[in-house]
């Protein structure tokens, strides 16, 4: 199975994860500062900044696109409860 790297720069932790893992599944386990509300792409509480490797994250779904727009999110922002790590590269994130 393809593996990807996911780095939480606020706590300096890098995790090797199987492709398809959502950021939320990892960030809660390592205690990164990203926070959650609805956990299903509705509220925008989990907005995070992607510092690098945006191309190694899944494209936003229509649901995520909607919540990004509602929260006037910048181009480098994603919802941690929605974005999945695709593998073959490193994604760097920190809380918005």
């Amino acid at each position: 199975m393809a593996k990807g790297k996911l780095s939480f720069t606020d706590i300096d932790v890098t995790v090797t994860v199987p492709a398809g893992t959502r950021v939320i599944e990892v960030s809660e386990k390592v205690g990164a500062g990203i926070i959650y509300g609805c956990r299903e792409g509705d509220c925008g509480t989990c907005l995070m900044k992607v510092e690098g490797g945006m191309e190694y994250l899944s494209e936003p779904t229509a649901l995520e696109d909607k919540v990004l727009k509602e929260n006037m999110a910048g181009k480098d922002m994603r919802c941690a409860c929605q974005a999945q790590v695709l593998g073959d590269g490193e994604v760097k994130v920190h809380p918005a």
């Binding site: 706590i11 300096d12 932790v13 890098t14 995790v15 199987p18 990892v26």
Partner: peptide, 17 residues
Amino acid sequence: ESLVGKAKPKVVDFADL
């Protein structure tokens, strides 16, 4: 240490979390 940002950078595998 984590509070003052002195936690050592860590690399871990998802399976070990």
